[in-house]
Design a protein around this nucleic acid. Sequence first.
DNA 1: TTGTACGCGTTATCAA
DNA 2: TTGATAACGCGTACAA
Lengths: 355, 355
Amino acid sequence: MGYDQAVMSTRRATISDVAREAGVSPSTASVVFSGKTPVSEATRRRVLEAASALGYTGPDPRAASLRTGRSGIVGVVFEEHLGTAFLDPVKTLMMDGLADAVAPLGAGLLLLRDQGPVFGGPSLTTAPIDAAVLIGCSGFLRESLDIVRSRGIPVVVIEGDAGEGVPRIGLDNREAQRQAASHLRGLGHTDVAVVTLPIDAARPRGPVGPGADITVDVTRERLAGALDVFPDARVHSAAGSFIDEGLAAGRALFADPQARPTAVIAQSDLLAAGVIRAAEEAGMRVPEDVSVTGFDGIVVDGLAPRVLTTLEQPATDKGRAAGHAVAAMIEGRDAASLSFTCVFREGDTTGPAPR
Amino acid sequence: MGYDQAVMSTRRATISDVAREAGVSPSTASVVFSGKTPVSEATRRRVLEAASALGYTGPDPRAASLRTGRSGIVGVVFEEHLGTAFLDPVKTLMMDGLADAVAPLGAGLLLLRDQGPVFGGPSLTTAPIDAAVLIGCSGFLRESLDIVRSRGIPVVVIEGDAGEGVPRIGLDNREAQRQAASHLRGLGHTDVAVVTLPIDAARPRGPVGPGADITVDVTRERLAGALDVFPDARVHSAAGSFIDEGLAAGRALFADPQARPTAVIAQSDLLAAGVIRAAEEAGMRVPEDVSVTGFDGIVVDGLAPRVLTTLEQPATDKGRAAGHAVAAMIEGRDAASLSFTCVFREGDTTGPAPR
DNA sequence: TTGTACGCGTTATCAA
DNA sequence: TTGATAACGCGTACAA
């Protein structure tokens, strides 16, 4: 007993300690806690009593997961600061769908930022995850991705290309954006500018040349759709999907009164809202002097009573689909890629090109 | 070699395999990956080559965390569906602050729903976390909490009482709500109704009697503040902080034209927005026929051009404070409880009581 | 700078 | 229904 106390005071009780105290074998004690095998009521109670006497509160998650190979954790990897998971309305809806679909699986969601394996914390590669959902997939991720996949961890990517064998939950970004662009062309616009989402991890802000290296898939695809219709469009990148970024980009585009575009294709609704504000600042009317389109179909505060011309995307469904896909893969089934479709919605922020 | 291949095909290479292949000891190989001890460039390269030859991609997170006792994961526990983490604007802001404060720590955030240890998935008790942040703390949690604390895992609670020794990040809910109520009394209101947030995990919707058992701390505190001023107020609980819930509650309150309150204290801005909508539906003018107050100070879509009379709370700061607190505790420092203060903001949704 | 030896806490398997 | 055994894969004193 003296020994036991000494031991107890220095280290936490383990399941072996409990077993010893209860006079059973460790495996029996283990079974009492896991419930995976029938145990006689008598031993069961003895073990539980021993446990509470020793202050043992159940198996150590780390050890259990080493042994079983499962942690019950699904990693969700973002390319940007984790805050975007919460502040970007589209991601927010996606996460809701994802949480929904993953719940029956009993899994928790681990929010990860891919910062490369250099930084201290858990990256995709160092976290004990059972599966991973990537939100976009840029260069950085590619590398970690191979590692994860080589470990046999199921991976699904939302809006991005993670290579062969990784199911994709996609959106018809290019086609959808082309649709909005065509709408503008149909209205007679020829001098068009594009305000893009971040083009890469460094998130520079400013003009984008024709040869620019765009590593963010969504940005690239939507831009391609716009350029399909307006190959000569001026392109300006924002540092994030925020109203303020749209405002900054709009100011830049409208700075020179002699060289103002008659239409602006923004790659998100928030950016569009910012551009509209910039237009008003510059004394332009929307849509009489300049037309603006968005992307996402979310509710943007402060835009009312305007209705944005935009592309509605099924954000929640995308998340849910990703959840179902990882759930399937965890259970050993196959998961297929899936592409969702945007719906063009004409509002009152686009009109005929000014003469 | 034949043996090696046989082994490789059946199980994943471990660091020992790599060491053997490279002709060094396991510990040396380990050091190559962890970088905790200088290694000669030659051995280093040999190990790396062996690793890539064997397809070894670095230490297994599960084993590593068993050994080191750290996982780099901070658990965030919600009482409700995880979706609320993303759909409730206040929680959203909190999470942003939390992510922010935890980032330098290099930790990932694990979103957990506390559904009691029965359910299968990782709960607070079965997840490999280094620390936990509780969002609220009701009965369910209490139990898991003891377990976690007995394991020596630092815990912080936002808006809740988790018992002695658990630092709290709080809000002056009661005082703030009392302030809004006093404002109404000052305007001459006497017949007042309260629309509350969920009162417990079952989230019933409907009238709340005087003796009701309210397990959600925030709800209880804010209600107490309202009752401090209007002890006889009718109380109606909503099933969540949504506009639609406020709408439903409002309809119930305004159903009988003979017994309509002249003011409604809603426990969140979203609820308030719903109540206002219900009032309009019922042909009542705000604030001429009925005054409405909210709580939170967030931007509610569709409310413009109205400005809600409400209590602004520093949601982001609360999250950040919680993050700093767990960071401190993980590093062995102490963390103190902290209480934030709401600011009363008078809008145009409250006015003199109708005669 | 490298190697030896051991323990981290569990659980699966199989035999009794 | 219970127990003995053997991993699970790694990190780290400590000695060489």
